[in-house]
Protein backbone atom coordinates (compact mmCIF):
# COMPACT_ATOMS: atom_id res chain seq x y z
CA UNK A 1 0.00 0.00 0.00
CA UNK A 2 1.59 3.31 -0.97
CA UNK A 3 1.77 6.34 1.30
CA UNK A 4 -1.06 8.29 -0.28
CA UNK A 5 -3.60 5.51 0.23
CA UNK A 6 -2.56 5.01 3.81
CA UNK A 7 -3.69 8.57 4.62
CA UNK A 8 -7.18 7.74 3.38
CA UNK A 9 -7.59 5.08 6.02
CA UNK A 10 -8.53 7.26 9.06
CA UNK A 11 -11.33 9.22 7.34
CA UNK A 12 -12.72 6.08 5.74
CA UNK A 13 -12.66 4.26 9.07
CA UNK A 14 -14.31 7.25 10.73
CA UNK A 15 -17.08 7.32 8.13
CA UNK A 16 -17.61 3.57 8.38
CA UNK A 17 -17.87 3.52 12.17
CA UNK A 18 -19.81 6.74 12.71
CA UNK A 19 -21.90 7.05 9.55
CA UNK A 20 -22.27 3.84 7.53
CA UNK A 21 -22.67 1.50 10.51
CA UNK A 22 -25.32 3.55 12.38
CA UNK A 23 -27.26 4.11 9.14
CA UNK A 24 -27.14 0.38 8.43
CA UNK A 25 -28.33 -0.49 11.94
CA UNK A 26 -31.10 2.11 11.75
CA UNK A 27 -32.19 0.91 8.31
CA UNK A 28 -32.24 -2.73 9.37
CA UNK A 29 -34.44 -1.86 12.34
CA UNK A 30 -36.68 0.40 10.27
CA UNK A 31 -37.39 -2.29 7.73
CA UNK A 32 -38.28 -4.86 10.39
CA UNK A 33 -41.95 -5.80 10.86
CA UNK A 34 -42.46 -3.28 13.70
CA UNK A 35 -40.68 -0.61 11.71
CA UNK A 36 -42.80 -1.08 8.61
CA UNK A 37 -45.90 -1.03 10.80
CA UNK A 38 -44.79 2.35 12.21
CA UNK A 39 -44.14 3.63 8.68
CA UNK A 40 -47.70 2.75 7.75
CA UNK A 41 -49.19 4.48 10.78
CA UNK A 42 -50.90 7.87 10.26
CA UNK A 43 -49.49 9.10 13.61
CA UNK A 44 -45.95 8.83 12.24
CA UNK A 45 -46.81 10.93 9.21
CA UNK A 46 -48.73 13.48 11.26
CA UNK A 47 -45.67 13.96 13.51
CA UNK A 48 -43.35 14.18 10.48
CA UNK A 49 -45.68 16.79 8.99
CA UNK A 50 -45.75 18.80 12.22
CA UNK A 51 -41.96 18.68 12.53
CA UNK A 52 -41.47 19.74 8.91
CA UNK A 53 -43.86 22.64 9.40
CA UNK A 54 -42.17 23.74 12.64
CA UNK A 55 -38.73 23.48 10.99
CA UNK A 56 -39.95 25.53 8.01
CA UNK A 57 -41.51 28.23 10.20
CA UNK A 58 -38.44 28.41 12.45
CA UNK A 59 -36.11 28.60 9.45
CA UNK A 60 -38.18 31.38 7.91
CA UNK A 61 -38.23 33.30 11.21
CA UNK A 62 -34.46 32.90 11.55
CA UNK A 63 -33.97 34.15 7.98
CA UNK A 64 -36.19 37.18 8.47
CA UNK A 65 -34.50 38.11 11.75
CA UNK A 66 -31.01 37.03 10.77
CA UNK A 67 -30.71 38.92 7.50
CA UNK A 68 -30.92 42.44 8.96
CA UNK A 69 -28.62 41.41 11.82
CA UNK A 70 -26.02 40.01 9.41
CA UNK A 71 -26.41 43.08 7.21
CA UNK A 72 -25.79 45.50 10.08
CA UNK A 73 -22.80 43.53 11.32
CA UNK A 74 -21.21 43.54 7.86
CA UNK A 75 -21.55 47.33 7.74
CA UNK A 76 -19.81 47.86 11.09
CA UNK A 77 -16.21 49.02 11.46
CA UNK A 78 -13.75 46.14 11.68
CA UNK A 79 -13.13 46.25 15.45
CA UNK A 80 -16.76 46.44 16.49
CA UNK A 81 -17.65 43.76 13.97
CA UNK A 82 -15.35 41.26 15.65
CA UNK A 83 -16.93 41.97 19.03
CA UNK A 84 -20.48 41.66 17.77
CA UNK A 85 -19.71 38.39 16.00
CA UNK A 86 -18.27 37.14 19.26
CA UNK A 87 -21.52 38.12 21.01
CA UNK A 88 -23.51 36.22 18.38
CA UNK A 89 -21.61 33.04 19.16
CA UNK A 90 -21.46 33.62 22.93
CA UNK A 91 -24.74 31.79 23.80
CA UNK A 92 -23.10 28.52 22.70
CA UNK A 93 -20.84 28.75 25.70
CA UNK A 94 -23.84 27.86 27.80
CA UNK A 95 -25.51 24.46 27.64
CA UNK A 96 -28.70 24.18 25.58
CA UNK A 97 -30.76 23.06 28.59
CA UNK A 98 -29.51 25.95 30.71
CA UNK A 99 -30.43 28.40 27.96
CA UNK A 100 -33.85 26.81 27.60
CA UNK A 101 -34.50 27.08 31.36
CA UNK A 102 -33.51 30.74 31.13
CA UNK A 103 -36.04 31.17 28.31
CA UNK A 104 -38.72 29.47 30.43
CA UNK A 105 -38.12 32.04 33.16
CA UNK A 106 -38.28 34.82 30.61
CA UNK A 107 -41.45 33.59 28.92
CA UNK A 108 -43.40 32.67 32.08
CA UNK A 109 -44.65 36.24 32.80
CA UNK A 110 -46.16 36.34 29.31
CA UNK A 111 -48.19 33.16 29.89
CA UNK A 112 -47.10 31.65 26.60
CA UNK A 113 -45.40 28.54 28.02
CA UNK A 114 -46.77 25.19 26.87
CA UNK A 115 -47.79 26.58 23.49
CA UNK A 116 -46.46 26.07 19.97
CA UNK A 117 -45.43 29.71 20.02
CA UNK A 118 -43.06 29.12 22.93
CA UNK A 119 -41.62 26.03 21.24
CA UNK A 120 -40.93 27.86 17.96
CA UNK A 121 -39.64 30.90 19.85
CA UNK A 122 -37.15 28.71 21.71
CA UNK A 123 -35.99 26.97 18.54
CA UNK A 124 -35.72 30.32 16.76
CA UNK A 125 -33.66 31.74 19.59
CA UNK A 126 -31.41 28.71 19.79
CA UNK A 127 -30.57 28.36 16.12
CA UNK A 128 -30.48 32.01 15.04
CA UNK A 129 -26.66 32.21 15.18
CA UNK A 130 -26.48 29.36 12.64
CA UNK A 131 -28.39 31.61 10.26
CA UNK A 132 -26.52 34.82 11.05
CA UNK A 133 -23.00 33.48 10.51
CA UNK A 134 -23.35 32.15 6.93
CA UNK A 135 -25.47 35.17 5.99
CA UNK A 136 -22.83 37.51 7.36
CA UNK A 137 -20.21 35.61 5.43
CA UNK A 138 -22.12 36.02 2.16
CA UNK A 139 -23.07 39.68 2.69
CA UNK A 140 -19.55 40.62 3.69
CA UNK A 141 -18.27 39.14 0.42
CA UNK A 142 -20.59 41.24 -1.77
CA UNK A 143 -18.62 43.43 -4.17
CA UNK A 144 -18.43 47.01 -2.88
CA UNK A 145 -20.83 49.48 -4.48
CA UNK A 146 -23.13 46.67 -5.67
CA UNK A 147 -26.31 48.24 -4.31
CA UNK A 148 -25.29 51.62 -5.68
CA UNK A 149 -24.71 50.12 -9.12
CA UNK A 150 -28.21 48.60 -9.10
CA UNK A 151 -29.87 51.84 -7.96
CA UNK A 152 -27.86 53.74 -10.55
CA UNK A 153 -29.24 51.50 -13.31
CA UNK A 154 -32.80 52.29 -12.27
CA UNK A 155 -33.64 49.85 -9.48
CA UNK A 156 -35.76 51.22 -6.62
CA UNK A 157 -34.90 50.18 -3.04
CA UNK A 158 -37.07 47.02 -3.13
CA UNK A 159 -35.71 46.01 -6.54
CA UNK A 160 -32.14 46.54 -5.36
CA UNK A 161 -32.81 44.16 -2.49
CA UNK A 162 -34.77 41.44 -4.25
CA UNK A 163 -33.12 41.52 -7.69
CA UNK A 164 -29.51 41.99 -6.62
CA UNK A 165 -28.74 41.64 -2.92
CA UNK A 166 -30.81 38.51 -2.25
CA UNK A 167 -29.70 36.55 -5.34
CA UNK A 168 -26.08 37.59 -4.83
CA UNK A 169 -26.17 36.30 -1.24
CA UNK A 170 -28.12 33.14 -2.11
CA UNK A 171 -25.26 30.77 -1.16
CA UNK A 172 -25.36 32.21 2.38
CA UNK A 173 -29.15 32.04 2.53
CA UNK A 174 -29.15 28.37 1.50
CA UNK A 175 -26.34 27.47 3.91
CA UNK A 176 -28.12 29.22 6.79
CA UNK A 177 -31.44 27.57 6.02
CA UNK A 178 -29.86 24.13 5.82
CA UNK A 179 -28.02 24.65 9.10
CA UNK A 180 -31.24 25.68 10.88
CA UNK A 181 -33.75 23.40 9.19
CA UNK A 182 -31.92 20.11 9.79
CA UNK A 183 -31.43 20.34 13.57
CA UNK A 184 -34.91 21.82 14.12
CA UNK A 185 -36.49 18.98 12.12
CA UNK A 186 -35.22 16.48 14.72
CA UNK A 187 -35.45 18.73 17.79
CA UNK A 188 -37.11 17.43 20.96
CA UNK A 189 -35.63 19.00 24.12
CA UNK A 190 -36.48 22.63 23.43
CA UNK A 191 -40.04 22.06 22.18
CA UNK A 192 -40.80 19.69 25.05
CA UNK A 193 -39.54 22.10 27.70
CA UNK A 194 -41.13 25.24 26.29
CA UNK A 195 -44.10 23.84 24.38
CA UNK A 196 -45.03 21.12 26.84
CA UNK A 197 -47.26 18.25 25.87
CA UNK A 198 -48.79 20.31 23.08
CA UNK A 199 -45.51 20.65 21.20
CA UNK A 200 -44.87 16.99 20.59
CA UNK A 201 -42.62 16.64 17.54
CA UNK A 202 -41.13 13.75 15.60
CA UNK A 203 -37.90 14.13 17.58
CA UNK A 204 -39.75 13.53 20.85
CA UNK A 205 -41.34 10.41 19.39
CA UNK A 206 -37.95 9.09 18.25
CA UNK A 207 -36.34 9.79 21.59
CA UNK A 208 -39.21 8.13 23.44
CA UNK A 209 -39.15 5.10 21.14
CA UNK A 210 -35.45 4.51 21.71
CA UNK A 211 -35.05 5.51 25.36
CA UNK A 212 -38.11 3.78 26.67
CA UNK A 213 -36.75 0.75 24.82
CA UNK A 214 -40.24 -0.21 23.88
CA UNK A 215 -40.18 0.38 20.15
CA UNK A 216 -36.74 1.19 18.68
CA UNK A 217 -38.00 -0.05 15.29
CA UNK A 218 -40.58 2.76 15.09
CA UNK A 219 -37.93 5.30 16.12
CA UNK A 220 -35.58 4.02 13.44
CA UNK A 221 -38.33 4.25 10.82
CA UNK A 222 -39.13 7.84 11.71
CA UNK A 223 -35.41 8.73 11.76
CA UNK A 224 -35.09 7.45 8.20
CA UNK A 225 -38.08 9.49 7.09
CA UNK A 226 -36.62 12.72 8.55
CA UNK A 227 -33.24 11.99 6.93
CA UNK A 228 -34.97 11.35 3.62
CA UNK A 229 -36.82 14.69 3.83
CA UNK A 230 -33.54 16.55 4.37
CA UNK A 231 -31.82 14.78 1.50
CA UNK A 232 -34.81 15.39 -0.74
CA UNK A 233 -34.73 19.13 -0.05
CA UNK A 234 -30.99 19.34 -0.72
CA UNK A 235 -31.37 17.33 -3.91
CA UNK A 236 -34.23 19.54 -5.08
CA UNK A 237 -32.22 22.66 -4.41
CA UNK A 238 -29.26 21.29 -6.33
CA UNK A 239 -31.44 20.48 -9.31
CA UNK A 240 -32.80 24.02 -9.44
CA UNK A 241 -29.49 25.77 -8.92
CA UNK A 242 -27.02 23.35 -10.45
CA UNK A 243 -25.81 25.92 -12.97
CA UNK A 244 -24.81 28.29 -10.18
CA UNK A 245 -22.34 25.89 -8.62
CA UNK A 246 -23.71 26.18 -5.09
CA UNK A 247 -23.40 23.45 -2.46
Amino acid sequence: MNDRRWWLFPPIAWLLVFLALPVAVTASKAFSAAGVEALASPTTWRLVGVSTLVAAVTTAACLVAGYPVAWCISRMPERRRRWVLFLVVLPFWANLLVRTYALMTMLRPFSVLDTWFAAVFGLWHGWLPFMVLPLYNAIEKLPPRLAEAAADLGAGPAQVFFKVIVPATMPGIVAGCVLVFIPVLGAFATPEMLGGAQAFMAGSRIQLAFLSGRNPEAGAAMTLVLTAITLLLLWGYRRVHRSEGLL
Partner: peptide, 9 residues
Amino acid sequence: FQSYALFPH
Protein backbone atom coordinates in the same frame (compact mmCIF):
# COMPACT_ATOMS: atom_id res chain seq x y z
CA PHE B 1 -17.12 52.23 -10.80
CA GLN B 2 -13.44 51.67 -10.17
CA SER B 3 -14.36 48.36 -8.50
CA TYR B 4 -16.64 47.42 -11.48
CA ALA B 5 -19.52 46.41 -9.14
CA LEU B 6 -20.82 43.76 -11.54
CA PHE B 7 -23.66 41.55 -10.32
CA PRO B 8 -21.87 38.32 -9.37
CA HIS B 9 -24.96 36.09 -9.72
